[in-house]
Amino acid sequence: MGKDNVTVLCNCATDEMVKDEALMDIVTTRKVIEFMEELCEREGYPKEVLTDNGAQFKSKEMEKYLSERSIDHKRVLKGKWEEEAWKERKGKCDDEAWKERKGKCEEEAWKERKGNCEEEAWKKRKGKCEEEAWKKRKGKCEEEAWKERKGKCDDEAWKERKGKCEEEAWKERKGNCEEEAWKKRKGKCEEEAWKERKGKCDDEAWKERKGKCDDEALKERKGNCEEEAWKERKGKCDDEAWKERKGKCDEEAWKERKGKCDEEAWKERKGKCK
Rank of each mutant, 00 (worst) to 15 (best):
D203T: 10
W182E: 14
K104G: 00
R209L: 12
W170A: 15
V32G: 04
G151L: 09
E37W: 05
L39G: 08
E100V: 09
I71S: 08
R89L: 02
G235N: 08
E112C: 02
K140P: 01
E118C: 03
G54W: 02
K260P: 02
E168M: 01
E256L: 13
A193G: 03
G223D: 08
N11C: 12
R257E: 11
K207R: 15
E148K: 13
I26W: 11
D95R: 09
I33V: 12
K159D: 01
R269A: 12
S70H: 08
C225H: 07
G103M: 12
W254K: 11
L218N: 07
S67D: 13
E256T: 12
C213A: 11
R75G: 04
S70D: 09
E179Q: 08
G2S: 14
E37V: 08
M24Y: 15
E190N: 13
P46Q: 05
K126R: 14
K138A: 09
R233M: 10
E132N: 01
K234Y: 03
K114C: 13
C225D: 05
D250P: 00
K104Y: 02
K136Q: 06
K162Q: 10
K159S: 03
A241W: 09
E268K: 15
G79P: 03
D239N: 09
E63S: 15
E240T: 04
K210V: 05
K74R: 15
K234V: 05
E156D: 08
C237Y: 10
K270E: 13
C12K: 12
E144W: 02
